[in-house]
């Protein structure tokens, strides 16, 4: 049993879970989206470790990059609305 590799796996997995929890429990939409982008990038890293480099590439470009850009763009366009929502 390769202990070093297992510790690395464990560390990656726990970080992934922690990021997901942080993204899901964030109340500020912009913060949540940025945490989600980080989560997607780390997920791409994990998939590269699981010998799926093509998926890692797609996830980094589409899952993290494009989804994040979509959500952030929409957040910018709806910014006044979210400010009023936060102050409610």
């Amino acid at each position: 049993m390769n202990l070093f590799l297992f510790c690395f796996d464990l560390l990656l997995s726990l970080t992934l879970l922690a990021l997901a929890v942080a993204a899901l429990s964030s109340r500020d939409p912009r913060r949540g989206v940025i945490l989600f982008i980080t989560f997607g990038l780390l997920l791409a890293l994990v998939w590269a470790r699981l010998r799926a480099p093509d998926l890692a590439l797609t996830e980094a470009a589409i899952g993290a990059g494009l989804t994040g850009a979509l959500m952030l763009g929409a957040a910018r366009r709806a910014a006044p609305r979210f400010d009023s929502e936060d102050s409610r």
Binding site: A23, L24, G32, F39, V46, G63, T67, M71, A75
Partner: peptide, 21 residues
Amino acid sequence: GLWRRLIALNVVGSGVFHVLV
């Protein structure tokens, strides 16, 4: 809120993909 639900939905999808990988 649409925001949190969309992020949640994407996390659900990522979880399914992760199981498959």
